[in-house]
Computed example of a mutant assay.
Amino acid sequence: MSDAAIQDRAAGSIMGAFIGDALGLGPHWYYDLAVLRRDYGDWITTYTDPKPGRYHSDLKAGKLSQNGILLRLMLASLVARGGYDEADFCRRMDQEIFPLLNGMPVNGPGGYTQQSIRDAWRKRVQQNLPWGQTGGQADTTEGIARTLALAVRYAFQPEELAAAISSNTRLTQIDDTVVTLTVAYGAVLGLLVQGHKLNRSLSGKLMRLSRAGKLPFHTITHTDLQPPQADYPRKSGHFASPDALLTPSYVAAAAVDPDIRIEPAWKVSIVYGMTCAIYHQLPAAYHLSARFPDDFESAVLHAINGGGENQARAMLTGALVGAQVGLSGIPPRFLDGLDESETLQRSAMDLGAKVGAAAAASSAGV
Rank of each mutant, 00 (worst) to 15 (best):
I14D: 01
L148S: 06
F156Y: 14
A323Q: 12
E297Y: 04
L338M: 06
K205M: 14
L215R: 02
F89M: 13
E96A: 12
N107P: 05
H196I: 08
A149Q: 06
Y154G: 06
H287P: 07
D139V: 12
D32I: 00
R313Q: 08
L161V: 06
Q7P: 06
P264M: 11
A4K: 07
D139W: 10
G337K: 13
L301V: 09
D139P: 01
T221Q: 10
E342D: 15
N305V: 11
A138E: 12
L202A: 06
T223I: 14
P27S: 12
L320M: 15
G103Q: 10
D176R: 03
W29E: 05
L202D: 09
L192V: 15
D88L: 10
Y30W: 00
A87R: 12
T221K: 10
R170T: 12
V300S: 03
D339G: 07
G308N: 05
A277R: 13
I278L: 08
I330K: 01
T46A: 14
D257N: 15
A163N: 09
L73D: 06
L75Q: 13
G16W: 00
N107S: 15
F89P: 01
D21P: 06
K235L: 13
G108Q: 06
T141I: 07
E160L: 15
L78Y: 12
G204C: 04
T169E: 11
D243P: 02
A255F: 04
